[in-house]
């Protein structure tokens, strides 16, 4: 009787000792690898024979902090000339990680696709887009933009959407200005509206 009581005390002491506290780890800085901070549109004029002429004109949208309350992205006005045809190269970057996301998009070409919408591309469009990616797949990293010679209006909205994980074989998805792109599934990785000014 006495012994078992003593044993119990020992058991309790052992329990108390085994109750050694675990501590949380020190926090580490986590670099947001997925955030897109910069989208750069590189326009270069194409002549009638399809050769690149002149200098590259660059317009960008940037949001150095990623998604953050109170911070809105800075978006340039895109200025293009009526009647001209341009090659458009889109560069996507993560400036926090100093990473070129364009490469990742090209690597996962089967899961990514840019769509070109807004009043600039749909309705009575002032711009038309044509996929011209080097691999031949429809991605939209490189393409051809044609500005109407006599557009109905001189300003418009140029909405550029990057879809991820969509069904590229969905009927209509071959159209770069497919308004019902959501029906092809997936989600938007980018959805930016650039103001467009035509000279």
């Amino acid at each position: 009787m006495f012994n078992s009581k003593k044993n119990l005390v020992y058991t309790m002491a052992l329990l108390a000792l085994s109750f050694t506290a675990c501590e949380s780890d020190d926090p580490v800085i986590e670099n947001d690898g997925e955030v897109i901070t910069d989208v750069i549109l590189n326009f270069q004029e194409l002549d009638a024979t399809g050769n690149l002429v002149g200098a590259v004109t660059t317009f960008s949208a940037s949001d150095p902090q990623g998604i953050e309350v109170g911070a809105t992205p800075t978006i340039d006005d895109v200025t293009l000339t009526k009647g001209k045809t341009y090659q458009l190269n889109i560069e996507v970057r993560n400036s926090i990680e100093n990473e070129d996301i364009t490469e990742e998009i090209l690597e996962e070409a089967d899961e990514h696709q840019f769509f070109f919408l807004g009043t600039a591309f749909v309705g009575s469009p002032v711009l038309t887009y044509q996929y011209d990616d080097l691999s031949g797949e429809l991605i939209g990293v490189q393409g051809i933009v044609t500005v109407a010679a006599s557009p109905g209006f001189n300003t418009a909205n140029m909405r550029i959407v990057l879809r991820h994980d969509l069904d590229k074989n969905f009927p209509g998805a071959t159209n770069p200005s497919f308004e019902n792109f959501v029906q092809a599934g997936g989600e938007s990785d980018l959805d930016i509206t650039f103001p467009l000014i035509l000279n």
Binding site: I36, T37, E68, V69, T72, S188, L190, D191
Partner: peptide, 10 residues
């Protein structure tokens, strides 16, 4: 309120 980012609105 909404947050506007390059990814869209939230």
């Amino acid at each position: 309120e909404t947050v506007v980012s390059l990814r869209g609105t939230f």
